[in-house]
Amino acid sequence: MQPMPALQPEVDADGDVHQHATQWFIRLQQPNCDRRLREAFAQWYAEPRNAEAYAAVQARWLRSAVPPERPRPNPVQLRRSKAGAYLGVLFLLLLAALAYLYWPWAQRQTSDLHSAPGERRIVKLNEGSSVQLNGASALNLDLRGRVRQLHLLQGQMYLEVRLDGRAMEVQVDDARIQVFGTRLLIGRRADGGELVVLDGKAMVTQGGDQRLVSAGERVSFGAHGIATVQKADIQAAQAWRKGELIAQDMPLGELLQRLTSPQGQRVWLLDEQTAHRRISGHFDLDHAEQTLQRLAAEQQVALHDLFGHGWLLR
């Protein structure tokens, strides 16, 4: 390649115009390209055949500057491992079991008023009424409005109402209790709720059904609706206030629930036939674990501790 003059190259008739076009293209890319050189290029470029040659050189450069297309990687085929799937299911089941065991504890911690497992707690409300909670019970309340509202989340309570001209309602799951008296026992269990009226009256409403309960009467309610109102055994109904559980021809499954619930525990009885055994007697709630072990031995069932949160009997 011949060296290019400082400004405009002399192009004769036999000269290679494409060679000069290449030289111009290279020179114009240099950082020391000044105004005088660009003016010389303009004079050279004014010739049509020069412009055509320069355009061809520029097009070749642009084609060579485009990077080649990268080959696309083959998609990765993920192979699912059966062991991994089983471990994932096992982890989800374990997570669900932990949530089931710890949910009652979490609910108590976020409630307005609660008692610890094994504790019986008496609280005077700011409007004058008083509440006694059995162990592992939880209560939300709103006493500011025209209707004083209580929501029993867990456990049992003894309610002594101070009459101040305002109504009072107690919510237990989807049942609503309108209080017309002054002393009541209200409980919430896994299979529903129970109301015992000691003084006055109360109206239980669930769905489209209602029951009026008078002093000395009891009624249970739950997923199957409101049961028939019955005469209450007042001594047995409020025995828990003294740390006792009185059972009179009670199914073993229900007895075990009433015994372990105040301790913040649950119980599972695997044999349904055994769960329906009828039991009578007085049981100590303040020493519930020893009572449970003695009862299991008497009924000849094996007792297994579930990490301190419940018991399995079989």
Rank of each mutant, 00 (worst) to 15 (best):
Ala6His: 05
Arg188Gln: 13
Cys33Met: 15
Glu217Ser: 07
His114Gln: 14
Arg294Lys: 13
Leu90Thr: 10
Pro262Ser: 04
Leu78Pro: 13
Leu295Cys: 11
Gln43His: 15
Ile234Ala: 10
Gln58Val: 08
Glu52Val: 06
Gln154Ala: 10
Val161Ser: 00
Tyr102Asp: 12
His304Tyr: 14
Thr228Ala: 15
Pro3Gly: 01
Gln8Thr: 13
Pro9Ala: 11
Asp209Gly: 08
Pro48Tyr: 08
Ala190Tyr: 11
Ala296Glu: 09
Leu259Pro: 03
Ser137Lys: 00
Ala239Pro: 05
Tyr86Thr: 00
Arg241Cys: 01
Pro9Trp: 02
Leu101Cys: 12
Leu90Cys: 13
Ala190Gln: 15
Leu312Ala: 06
Gln2Phe: 06
Arg146Met: 03
Thr205Cys: 12
Val172His: 01
Ala247Met: 12
Ala202Ile: 11
Pro3His: 02
Glu244His: 06
Phe41Tyr: 14
Ala302Phe: 05
Gln149Ile: 02
Ala46Trp: 14
Asn32Trp: 15
Leu101Gly: 08
Leu95His: 01
Gly15Leu: 10
Lys242Arg: 09
Arg266Lys: 11
Asn140Val: 04
Leu98Asn: 06
Asp14Gly: 12
Ala53Leu: 05
Ser129Leu: 02
Phe307Thr: 04
Arg63Pro: 02
Thr182Asp: 02
Val219Gln: 01
Arg49Thr: 03
Ala296Arg: 03
Leu113Gly: 06
Leu152Gln: 03
Val172Lys: 00
Phe221Val: 09
Val170Asn: 03
Asp16Asn: 13
Val213Pro: 00
Arg49Trp: 08
Gln156Tyr: 03
Leu150Asp: 04
Trp103Cys: 06
Val197Pro: 01
Arg49Met: 07
Gln2Asp: 14
Asp14Lys: 10
His304Lys: 11
Arg72Ile: 14
Gly128Lys: 00
Leu141Ser: 00
Leu270Glu: 15
Gly155Trp: 01
Asp112Trp: 01
Gln109Arg: 09
Phe180Pro: 01
Val57Thr: 03
